[in-house]
Every structure is written in C-alpha cells, then in structure tokens.
Nucleic acid binder design. Sequence first.
DNA 1: GCATATTAGTTGAAAATGTAACTAACAACC
DNA 2: GGTTGTTAGTTACATTTTCAACTAATATGC
Lengths: 155, 155
Amino acid sequence: MSKSEDFDVMAFLPYVLNQAADRLSLQFQHTYKGKYGMLRTEWRVLFHLGRYGAMTAKEICDKAGLHKTKVSRAVAALEEKRFLAREALEHDRRHAVLTLTHAGRLAFADLGHDAQAFDAQIRAQMSPEEARVLETCMMRIAGLSTDTPTNRNEP
Amino acid sequence: MSKSEDFDVMAFLPYVLNQAADRLSLQFQHTYKGKYGMLRTEWRVLFHLGRYGAMTAKEICDKAGLHKTKVSRAVAALEEKRFLAREALEHDRRHAVLTLTHAGRLAFADLGHDAQAFDAQIRAQMSPEEARVLETCMMRIAGLSTDTPTNRNEP
DNA sequence: GCATATTAGTTGAAAATGTAACTAACAACC
DNA sequence: GGTTGTTAGTTACATTTTCAACTAATATGC
C-alpha cells in the first residue's frame, strides 16, 4: 500500500506548482509578447520600474529575484525599445538609475491593466479564502515577505 | 487609491506562483542533477515511466504536458544512460514503447524517495488544510484532473 | 494500388538561459 | 598614493529550449 511507487506526481507539490505556473506564464505571455514583443524578464523589469518607480538594476535584481545578467539584457532590450532611460549617478558612476520613458509608462499602464484583468480572471475560479491561502503559501515558499509595500520607493 | 499603479506584483498570482515554482524546481534539481546528472525533463520522463509503467513518448507528452521534442531528447538521454529501453510495436512501428531498465527502476526508486521527502518538507511548512487548498487550486489552474489514478496503466 | 493526409518521432538552426570571467568605479588599508 | 578588495554591470561561451522542417510508418479516399 505505501511502497515507494505509490507516490503520485500529481500529489508532488513542485510538479503541480510548476504545471500551474507554466500554464499561467504561457497564457499571459501572449499579451506582452503579442503587443510589445517583450520577453518575460523584460515585462518583469518594466513592471518593477512602473510599479515601484525609478531604481538601479541591482535593486531590480534583489526585488524581483532575478539574476543580474538577465536584468542586464532585459534593460538593454527595453532601452533599445525606448521604454526606459539610464542615468549614471553623480556620486557613484557604477550605478545607473533606470527610469521609464513616456512610451514605457504607457506600455506599463496598458500591460498593468491587462495583468489585473488576467489576475481577476484566475481569482474568479476560486473562493476568496482559497486565494488568500494561495497567496500566503506561495509567498512563504517563494521566500518573499508578506507585508504589502505601498509606494516605498516613491517619495 | 485604486489607480492602475496600485496593482502590486506580489499580489499578481502568475508572478508569485512562478517565484514559488522556480524556487522549488531549483532546489530539487540539485538532487537529480547531482546524483544522476539528469535534466528536469529527464527526471520527469523517468518519473512518469516509473510511476505509471511502460508507455510511448506520445503518452508521456500528453500526460506530462511536455513538448515532443523535449521528450524525444530526454528519452535519448535516458537511453544513453541505460535507464530505459525502446521497443517498437509490432502492429504500428511508429510507436516505441518505453520501459525502464533495472538501473532505471533503481534510479526512480531512489529519486522517488527523495521527492517524497522533499514534498513532505514543503508540506511541513503549511497546515493540512492549506495543502489541500493548494493542491486543488493548482490542479484546477494547471487543467489537470483531480481524481487520483491508481495503477491505471499497469494491468 | 496509388496519391494524399495524419501521426510518432527526430533533427537542425535560432533564440534564450546560465555560468564564469571580465571591466570599470569606488572603498579601504597601509 | 598605490595595492588590494568589493560592487555594479557587461560580455563571452556553453547548455537548453523553442520552432520549423523533416523522415518514416500508417491510415484514408479514390
């Protein structure tokens, strides 16, 4: 009854989580890829800049949990698309503060709107209680803090 | 208060789900990569064959939600490692039934054991109720059936 | 029986990712 | 003030993934 073989993939949390996450990513990818030809990392970087305001690449790495090479390439691509601009800091020229251009802010507003709609659509498939459990568990597993930061970075 | 900018990444389900899934995948990757030099897809294929018995590549694609090229390459790699053997079907030689070798079954038993331990460790971070909610929601989002198939494929 | 369509699976090139080594700017120590 | 260490970010290369075209076997319609 409880041999090793009885362990089911479907009950293996990393597996089901990945399946679910993959599916959602793939679905929403259509939006940012279709509309702006963006890659997933580009979309994430855009989102962070749009949502939390201007910051350096390093800060995005830490906040978004992305590797610096990924961010570096995404920033280069977004700059190419004229969605952001870099500005070297006076006192420390290793850092470059990244700011969204007007076009970047428009894209963020547009995609942010879509993201919200997409999120709502997923949440519609579950009870508020389920959504709450999901959020706290995911945050816990992902190792993210649970507090909801509001305009922490925009003075 | 409810401008578009107030939408937080942390509350964006696809985002937190991906963060959580990525983290778990990365952690468990150490096990199968370290022990057997396997890739994620190889581990999944091994798991499906070990858990559900012999089947064709196509069946693995459908069941695991993987693309055929990925499976094709994983199967080739596992064959190279002598973890599985192919056998063309008599009546339709397009299909090849994949069966784990003895070494393959050993690897599956070993990794299956580790997977179970890993799963238990994650579940220890949440209540049984939370785990239940997580499972049903993930299955729903992933579009998997919720019934628990037991030895469906092994007569 | 023969042309055409389907299906299982493979292969090759292009895109993306991960790893590691690198550059440039600053800090700190002496 | 020069050597050493650290940090932000980039680049180069290897590995993986994706996409599209391909082969081989079978099924279908005439």
